[in-house]
């Protein structure tokens, strides 16, 4: 245990400059988000394009996964719980596992894989091609123009995708339940609504928003950290993916813990 703590401490000490830099970057992005509305009209089109790419174009994949996950939970739930005669807990499983946890995690993983990598690669290449310098030469802050609008775009897309994931997974759950025994959709929804609470939906939304922020932030940060060579771009992209996933998992545990304390 002491060894682990020592190692962690050492790592933090060695990366202290990087951590400080990341925090100041986060702060800049946050202040950029709050002043987004009053500054630019062109940033809005970047946001829309980002939402279109990250959200709308990923909807098919998210939908497919949501049906599969909702269905699998119900299938496994029924197989496992029926052995104890507790099939009704399958709804609880759908609520606690899918709505509270998997919807945001799965959406985040898809968004990391699609958008996180593309943002990091795009920004990395922009650095290599001097496009960031070009923006600076105009007096446009790359953080405001590139990072803030992409962050808002990813956050909005994550929020939207998580809602669709929840809805579609419930449909998937119902569809797979009908394979076991016929149940009216109304009854299924009724049972489901009896189990789900507003805070479950809210925690799912909060998680998706926070995860979206993390993905955009880490991807942009790593993209902008590319110094000069194109060979750095894939390395930075891998780093962005790994760091995003790690941070998402840790923050997920934290939010779940806070949720358990609050409700």
């Amino acid at each position: 245990m002491n060894h682990i703590l020592e190692m962690t401490g050492k790592k933090i000490y060695l990366n202290w400059t990087g951590i400080k830099e990341f925090f100041s970057f986060t702060f800049e992005v946050l202040s950029g988000i709050f002043s987004f509305g009053k500054r630019t009209q062109i940033g809005f089109s970047v946001v829309v394009k980002q939402v279109f790419f990250t959200g709308y174009q990923a909807l098919g994949l998210i939908g497919f996964l949501a049906i599969a996950v909702g269905g699998l939970i119900i299938l496994q739930g029924n197989l496992l719980l029926a052995a104890f005669g507790q099939s009704r807990w399958a709804y609880m499983l759908l609520v606690s596992v899918v709505i509270r946890e998997l919807s945001s995690i799965f959406t985040a993983l898809i968004v990391v894989a699609r958008s996180g990598t593309s943002i990091c690669t795009e920004l990395g290449n922009m650095v290599v091609n001097n496009e960031i310098d070009l923006l600076k030469s105009y007096g446009i802050s790359p953080i405001d123009y590139l990072v803030v609008s992409r962050t808002i775009g990813v956050v909005v897309a994550m929020f939207t995708l998580a809602i669709f994931f929840n809805i579609i997974s419930v449909f998937g759950g119902w569809f797979f339940t009908t394979l076991f025994y016929p149940i009216y959709f109304g009854d299924f929804i009724n049972n489901f609504v009896n189990e789900v609470m507003i805070q479950d939906i809210l925690v799912s939304v909060v998680k998706s928003v926070v995860f979206g922020f993390i993905i955009a932030l880490i991807s942009c940060y790593n993209g902008l950290k590319v110094a000069r060579a194109t060979t750095e771009v894939p390395q930075r992209t891998i780093k962005a993916v790994v760091n995003s996933i790690m941070l998402i998992v840790m923050v997920n545990i934290l939010i779940t813990y806070i949720y358990s304390l609050l409700f």
Partner: peptide, 20 residues
């Protein structure tokens, strides 16, 4: 399309919350 996508999600979310 983006507008529709986001608007639909917000509507669904509102409907769900109000329904629950």
């Amino acid at each position: 399309r983006t507008g529709l996508f986001v608007f639909a999600a917000i509507l669904i979310m509102l409907f769900l919350v109000l329904f629950i």
